[in-house]
Amino acid sequence: MRGIRLTAVVAFVTMGVSVPAAAQFAAPNPDVFAGAEDQQRARLLDQPCTDADEGHGCYRYDGRLIREAPCTYHIETGVIASKPTDQCYKMEAPRNYRGVWVDEFEGQAFIPEGTKAPEWPRDDLKSPEWDKEADRAIAARIWLDVERVDLNEERRRSGRKFFIEFIGRKTMYRGNYGHFGMSGHEIIVDRVISLRECPETGACS
């Protein structure tokens, strides 16, 4: 369970950002959410709160009323937590995956076998094409959640690459997952079948 201070949540809501994903740069599609309550919250997210809504989908912070974001809940005064990804979002059925896992600090990434890592734009940030290229890269990036499996900590030094085969569940809809919402999908690893470190040079397979 991860607590998020209300000051951060206020900033997220102001920007139209979904708390569980850490970044939703547009109003979220209600269909992506697993629960009916969270779907309804998504539909109402851009609607102003009234005094009658306080405690019923809205909360008061620093003198203003704020809509409850999908998948969030209060754990104590001043702290909001978010549901795990598979309790928040609709997920595909478990299946077998194989590919390269890049294990970097705040930068988990999974590159399925037979695909290439997404390329980030190299042009000037002010270039008209930059946003489109960045959006394509985010859509192709997959965040790998390994928190539910017991991996040898010796293997978890940042920046290493592994060839991994596992059983996992992928988010059904594209969104903004992982660190700062910079991944278009997330896969939760339920069981690791094999894991071996990639050589410093040559193919990783």
Rank of each mutant, 00 (worst) to 15 (best):
R2G: 12
L6E: 13
L6D: 09
T7S: 06
V9I: 10
V10P: 00
T14V: 09
V19H: 04
P20G: 07
F25M: 04
F25P: 04
A26D: 09
A27T: 11
P28C: 06
P30F: 02
V32C: 02
D38Q: 03
Q39L: 12
Q39T: 07
Q47G: 10
Q47C: 04
P48K: 11
T50R: 13
D51E: 15
A52V: 06
G55T: 11
C58M: 13
C58S: 08
Y59P: 01
R60G: 01
Y61V: 10
Y61S: 11
L65S: 14
I66K: 06
R67Q: 10
R67D: 06
P70R: 01
C71Q: 01
T72Y: 02
H74Q: 09
E76C: 01
G78W: 04
A81D: 06
S82Q: 02
K83C: 01
Y89I: 02
K90D: 15
M91T: 13
P94I: 03
P94V: 06
Y97N: 02
V102K: 07
D103G: 10
E104R: 15
F105G: 00
E106H: 04
F110E: 05
I111M: 05
I111S: 07
G114W: 00
A117R: 14
A117H: 06
A117Y: 08
P118S: 01
P118W: 01
D124F: 02
K126V: 00
P128I: 05
R136N: 09
A137P: 05
A137V: 07
I138A: 01
A139V: 00
A139N: 11
D145M: 07
E147D: 10
E147R: 13
R148F: 14
V149C: 11
E153A: 13
R155G: 13
S158Y: 12
S158N: 07
R160V: 13
F162V: 09
F166V: 04
G168F: 00
K170Y: 02
K170Q: 14
Y173T: 03
G178Q: 05
G178I: 00
G181I: 08
M182Q: 11
M182I: 00
S183A: 14
G184P: 10
I187R: 00
V189R: 01
D190L: 07
R191F: 15
R191H: 13
R191N: 15
V192L: 02
I193Y: 00
L195V: 13
E197P: 10
E197K: 03
E197H: 09
T201M: 11
S205N: 15
S205F: 01
